[in-house]
């Protein structure tokens, strides 16, 4: 029986989803749904279901937009953040959530990512980061680690990988965080914080792709891959209590950067007010 959450926030007539058995994307989509549900249900928080728009690009991750029962738009490859910028700038009262993948957001859409971060426009971007192009059958992406294998890197990947969260932070994102498919509760909280943050937020969530990345690189099946996340990714409270030595092979699950800066659409609203006051003279 589908849970109450699934009934209420997923489009059950469009399920089952297209993802492979063992894919991490379903967990991350659920994290997004739970985050939204908890914010919508919280009377203290001005997030409403009717004023929430989910935007995605192209790739496995981007199918999530169609399963979530909100206003949703599944756009062109790499352009989700640019479409979302148009939506947010035209209607700043809307909560705009972008669901994207490592290729969609940091390869073909890399320019839009850095410029939206630079503008500090109030979008919440959740990357389903599985280190591979899944939809097209396992080619290496900008986050595939050096030396790993893919169908287009049969002898090992030469490229150095991006850290998408650091990339966004470097470009000016005012909230960046890292989550994982394994750490569902922590990731849900990070997505909530991202949505509540005024300005550009990016939550880089490590997914798992047992079908392509796992199989090509001997990482085992879904259980082994999630087990790896459990052992190597550490929530903030534990992470910061660890010695530097112990942290060496660990990745933080938590907030990476959080600063306050003027949000773009609010700045524009102030500009319009200033211009109209002047021309009204």
């Amino acid at each position: 029986m589908p849970s109450e959450l699934v009934h209420k926030y997923l489009r059950i007539d469009h399920l089952p989803h297209i993802w492979c058995a063992g894919c991490g994307n379903g967990i991350i989509m659920r994290d997004v749904a739970v985050a939204l549900q908890e914010l919508i249900d919280d009377p203290e928080v001005p997030v409403s279901r009717d004023k929430t728009v989910v935007v995605s690009g192209i790739g496995c991750s981007s199918r999530a937009a169609g399963y979530l029962d909100f206003d949703s738009i599944h756009t062109t490859h790499g352009r989700a953040i640019a479409f979302a910028t148009g939506i947010k700038f035209a209607r700043p009262d809307l909560e705009v959530i972008v669901l994207t993948g490592d290729g969609d957001c940091s390869a073909i859409g890399g320019n839009h990512l850095i410029h939206a971060a630079r503008r500090n426009i109030g979008l919440t971007v959740v990357t389903f980061n599985n280190d591979i192009y899944g939809m097209t059958g396992g080619q290496y992406s900008p986050t595939t680690p050096t030396g790993d294998k893919a169908t287009t890197a049969p002898y090992g990947n030469l490229d150095r990988p991006f850290d998408i969260a650091q990339l966004a932070a470097g470009a000016g994102a005012t909230f960046t965080a890292r989550g994982s498919a394994y750490h569902a509760r922590e990731t849900t909280e990070l997505i909530k914080q991202g949505i509540l943050h005024k300005g550009f937020s990016l939550i880089d969530v490590y997914s798992v792709c047992p079908t392509y990345y796992g199989r090509k690189n001997g990482r085992g099946g879904p259980v082994e891959m999630l087990q790896w996340q459990k052992e190597h990714m550490v929530p903030a409270a534990t992470y910061y209590a660890m010695s530097e030595e112990a942290r060496r092979d660990k990745t933080l699950v938590g907030v990476l950067t959080h600063t306050e800066n003027p949000e773009y659409t609010e700045q524009y609203a102030a500009l319009v007010e200033r211009v109209r006051a002047q021309s009204g003279k």
């Binding site: 728009v53 937009a65 029962d69 206003d71 949703s72 599944h74 939506i87 209607r91």
Partner: peptide, 12 residues
Amino acid sequence: FGQGERYNITGL
């Protein structure tokens, strides 16, 4: 969008 219609747009 933003009126509670909750529908989907796609390029597929």
